[in-house]
């Protein structure tokens, strides 16, 4: 066989072999790997190159070496899932850099980190003053994660004592003008519902770039034609206003009527409705 043909076949074969190997080694982000894992990938890549270009003359030896590296990497990964000790040895432990607001100098030296680097890492986590940091830890991948002091944390609804309605992830039901049936049926909706919603907004399906339905079944769309103004769903706000109006009506009836019995009935129901309004508020207004 001609040399070039052998090279071609070998390259194609190794291309797919490498693809399968990398798939077998799992989904890890190359930027968030432990240094040793990174070396594993590089060495596997090098073996592939060396075998393809015939630098390792006996290709069976090359495959053997490649196989050992792949097998060990996968075996160590598997073992570190099974055992915490092996996991710690293979991946290393995380290092605490700041504890209770105090910088741990010895730990910083251990992880070969300078003060400048620590400050820059804190800044990238939006902690410009180290005094804002309660706890910082260097993960085994070299990432630095930061817990801000309680008074420097961003405000949440819980801090404000606000009740919020639970929300689940929205489903994308239209993409590039095509209806996606699977997410639709996941939400218990169908095409008829979608066509009805689009008719209500007054846009055609073909003009839709993205359409998402949120967990309460409101449809949000983005159109190809950006000069068209799409109304945001306001049904919930209107429903809330409607309930409040009814509450106000009941109160005024209670004032207007002469019958004592009716007065009691109106004011009792006004209180009831007020409770309903307050309870529904987080669900309808957000």
């Amino acid at each position: 066989m001609q040399d070039w043909l052998i090279l071609l076949l070998k390259t194609i074969g190794l291309y797919f072999l490498t693809f399968i190997i990398i798939r077998l080694m799992g989904k890890s982000n190359p930027l968030k790997m432990t240094p040793f894992k990174f070396i594993n990938y590089i060495i596997i890549a090098m073996f592939v190159v060396l075998i393809t270009l015939n630098i390792i003359e006996n290709w069976a030896f090359g495959m053997l070496a490649l196989g050992v590296w792949v097998a060990f990497t996968i075996a160590l990964d598997y073992l570190s899932i099974k055992s915490k000790q092996i996991h710690d040895i293979v991946n290393g432990k995380s290092t605490i850099l700041i504890d209770k607001g105090k910088i741990m100098e010895e730990n910083m030296q251990q992880s070969r980190m300078t003060g400048e680097e620590l400050l820059s890492a804190l800044r990238s986590k939006n902690a410009f003053s180290f005094g804002d940091v309660e706890f910082a830890v260097m993960e085994s991948t070299g990432d630095i994660n930061v817990l801000l002091k309680a008074d420097k944390k961003p405000v949440t609804a819980h801090d404000l004592g606000n009740q919020v309605a639970p929300q689940s992830q929205p489903q994308t039901v239209i993409l590039d003008g095509n209806v996606l049936d699977e997410p639709l049926s996941n939400m218990g909706l169908n095409r008829d519902w979608l066509y009805m919603q689009l008719e209500n907004i007054g846009v055609s399906l073909e003009n839709n770039f993205i359409g998402q339905a949120d967990s309460s079944g409101d449809l949000f769309v983005d159109l190809f034609d950006d000069s068209l103004q799409v109304p945001m769903p306001r049904v919930k706000e209107m429903l809330f206003a409607n309930l409040e109006k009814t509450h106000a009506d009941l109160l005024s009836f209670a004032l207007e009527t002469d019958s004592n019995e009716a007065k009691n009935m109106y004011s009792k129901n006004a209180t009831k409705l007020d409770e309903v309004v307050q309870k529904l508020k987080p669900y309808l207004l957000h």
Binding site: A165, P166, Q167, S168, M187, G188, L189, S215, S216, G217, V235, K236, M238, L239, N242, L280, Y283
Partner: peptide
């Protein structure tokens, strides 16, 4: 309207 939202909602608590 509330009934409509009740039917469309995915979340049990809602």
């Amino acid at each position: 309207t509330l009934k409509l939202y009740e039917a469309q909602s995915q979340n049990e608590e809602t």
